[in-house]
């Protein structure tokens, strides 16, 4: 109980800190870049609930993210829905897709599952590209409503993302420490043995895919207001898929802190590199670092810290 209370306190402190930061009014670019890093904290954490805890590698992260974003676009176009509604709806729709891919795990294990998620992402992108109401292939411009909190949209979105990041990490933290987390770990090691030891593997997998999908949708829902112009190729960007798995892999996939470390390090590095070098080169760095880590440090930074001498 003490630890749960402590965790709650930390979460609150981070949120309050975020609000304070937003009212500080430092250079606007700080919030702009900070938003992206925090968004990656949510994305990496969400990916890791399925990929790290349950061992099902999702290559279609961009599909879930984009679905959240496009749900928001639809609701903005149709009802001018407010931001909290967009976030919730984006999460729910992506969560539903997550439930769908959860049932795929009945037939598809390991590699086949991963390939299927990649395929799903392309099919969804094609559907969106041919759906003119949300802009089709040309994309759509989103107009932000006037006078937001904190007097500025970027600052508002930054604060919202702080809250979402805290929420996502908290969810991961709770799952990891609960019997659900232990069950997921068992099925990651051996699905057959887990089922035979009484673990309801299907139910746990459905839970993991749904929560993971929900959080990815949540991360994508504020995206239209952040960029104000959304086209399928930006929302379905493969970079999300690569970052979503690179960050936990680099940080460490077995604990909640791994994706956070990975997202903050890699996300910040990319933001800095985009300004100082070029966006292409920073992607190259992501790829090289990812490959280096899977080859040399399979348990990520967390693993390196825990066992400095290795095995």
């Amino acid at each position: 109980m003490v630890r749960t209370g402590g965790g709650l306190l930390v979460s609150l402190a981070v949120i309050v800190g975020g609000i304070l930061l937003a009212s500080l009014r430092v250079n606007l670019y700080f919030y702009f870049a900070g938003y992206v890093v925090l968004q990656y904290v949510v994305v990496a954490t969400a990916w890791n609930i399925l990929g790290g805890y349950a061992g099902y590698v999702n290559f279609g992260t961009s599909a879930f993210f984009a679905l959240g974003a496009y749900t928001a676009i639809f609701l903005i176009e149709a009802f001018r829905a407010p931001l909290p509604v967009l976030i919730l709806a984006g999460g729910l729709v992506s969560g539903l897709l997550g439930l769908g891919i959860g049932y795929l795990t009945l037939r598809l294990k390991g590699v086949f599952f991963s390939i299927a998620t990649l395929a799903l992402s392309v099919v969804l992108q094609t559907l969106i590209m041919n759906w003119d109401y949300v802009g089709g292939a040309k994309g759509v411009t989103v107009i932000r409503p006037g006078s937001p909190l904190f007097g500025n949209w970027v600052r508002l979105l930054f604060t919202v993302m702080v809250g979402l990041a805290v929420a996502a990490v908290t969810v991961a933290w709770i799952i990891e420490r609960s019997w659900v987390g232990r069950g997921l770990r068992a099925l990651r090691d051996s699905e057959e043995a887990a089922e035979c030891m009484g673990v309801p593997t299907l139910r746990l997998k459905l839970f993991a895919t749904t929560i993971s999908g929900f959080l990815l949708g949540v991360a994508g829902a504020p995206f239209p207001y952040y960029v104000t112009y959304v086209e399928p190729s930006s929302a379905f960007n493969l970079d999300y898929a690569v970052n979503a798995l690179a960050m936990p892999m680099i940080g460490g996939t077995t604990t909640w802190i791994g994706p956070v470390i990975g997202a903050v390090l890699l996300g910040t590095a990319q933001q800095v590199a985009t300004v100082t070098i070029s966006s292409e080169l920073n992607l190259l760095i992501v790829g090289v670092v990812l490959v280096a880590f899977v080859v040399l440090a399979p348990e990520g930074i967390v693993g390196l810290v825990r066992r400095p001498r290795g095995r």
Binding site: V57, L284, V294
Partner: peptide, 9 residues
Amino acid sequence: VFFFGLLFI
């Protein structure tokens, strides 16, 4: 993941 990273590189 290794091959995915390779593709990206």
